Amino acid sequence: MELTIITGMSGAGKSKAMGTFEDAGWFCVDNLPPGLLPALADLVLLEGSSVDRAAVVCDVRGGVWFKELEPVLGRVEGATGVRPRVVFLEASDDALLNRFRETRRPHPLGGSVAEGIARERSELGDVRERADVVIDTTGLSIWDLRRRVTEALMAPEGRRRMHVQFASFGYKHGVPRDADLLFDVRFLQNPHYVPALKPLTGLDAPVAQFVAAAPGMDDFRERLESLLDFLLPAYAQEGKASVVIGIGCTGGRHRSVAISEMLARRYARDHEVSTSHRHIERPSADPTT
């Protein structure tokens, strides 16, 4: 198994770094006293355990127990054969001071924030020297930090693919609030006006074939896929874990459903893909559906 210990200066972004591991499917624990690391390693190494990658935040919030980190790391490796990898996050004093001012939280070591930073930096000197990876988060945005953690600490085969959901909906029922991108396909011919297709949905082959053959569909599909071919890798590179793409027609039963399914098949090769047909069960008695 892989065991990564995230530590470092308070305010340097340890929780954000742990979130990157969590989004990638790692088992994560925040603020674990170092003395419990051997028990955690034993637990995940039990026969039948599905955990093979774990990330743990250990820092000065653990108080007197944090001082056990160095000897405990050696005990974990000796007892389990697993060498914990230590990641140390730091930032400049000015950057840390600004972050504490923004959050208005006290320093975990007490006293003024400036005094706490100075004391913590002194106490963590040996841990920093022991670290396998040191990341300076000064000037990094949340997304820069996620990207740095991913590139430095996760092998390509261990990175979770971005999840892309294609969500069909009907404009007359309301636009999905969680959509990152919205595309309106009401310009295409409506299967509702074909008596044999009206009671069906975009999940049925006759409707899907009708939509695929509609005038303008080929041009629309070419342009839409070209845009998504550019955007989705860019989102993944930025560290985005999931994207919701809304495809809307009038009632959400025919055109939007068929196109969502078409796009899902197209992008399942490179991403974790799902579909959600939010209004497919709504009645289509309204002639504008």
Rank of each mutant, 00 (worst) to 15 (best):
L3W: 04
G11T: 10
G25Y: 15
W26E: 04
V29C: 00
D30S: 10
N31K: 06
G35I: 13
L37S: 09
A39F: 03
L40C: 05
A41V: 08
V44F: 10
E47F: 09
E47S: 13
A54F: 05
R61M: 04
W65L: 15
L69F: 08
E70K: 13
R75Q: 13
T80A: 13
P84M: 03
V86L: 14
V87K: 06
F88S: 02
L89W: 06
L89S: 03
A91I: 14
A91R: 02
D93K: 10
A95P: 06
R101G: 01
T103F: 01
P106K: 07
L109Q: 07
A114Y: 02
A118E: 14
E123C: 11
G125K: 11
G125Y: 12
I135V: 13
T137R: 04
T138G: 00
T138D: 05
T138A: 08
I142E: 10
V149I: 15
A152V: 08
A152P: 03
A152S: 13
L153T: 09
M154G: 07
R159W: 02
R159S: 00
R160I: 07
H163R: 15
V164Y: 01
V164G: 00
V175K: 08
P176W: 01
R177K: 10
A179N: 04
L181F: 12
L182H: 14
F183Y: 11
D184V: 12
V185H: 03
R186C: 07
F187H: 08
L188H: 09
N190R: 04
P191Q: 06
P191K: 13
P195M: 13
K198D: 12
L200E: 07
T201M: 04
P206N: 05
A208W: 07
A208T: 11
V211I: 11
A213F: 07
A213Q: 13
A213D: 13
A214E: 10
F220E: 05
F220H: 02
E222H: 11
R223P: 02
L228P: 08
L228C: 09
L228Q: 12
L231W: 15
Y235W: 14
A241Q: 09
V243K: 09
I247E: 05
I247P: 01
T250E: 06
G251H: 14
V257R: 12
M262R: 13
A264T: 14
R266W: 04
R266Q: 10
E272K: 10
V273Q: 01
I280A: 03
T288W: 11
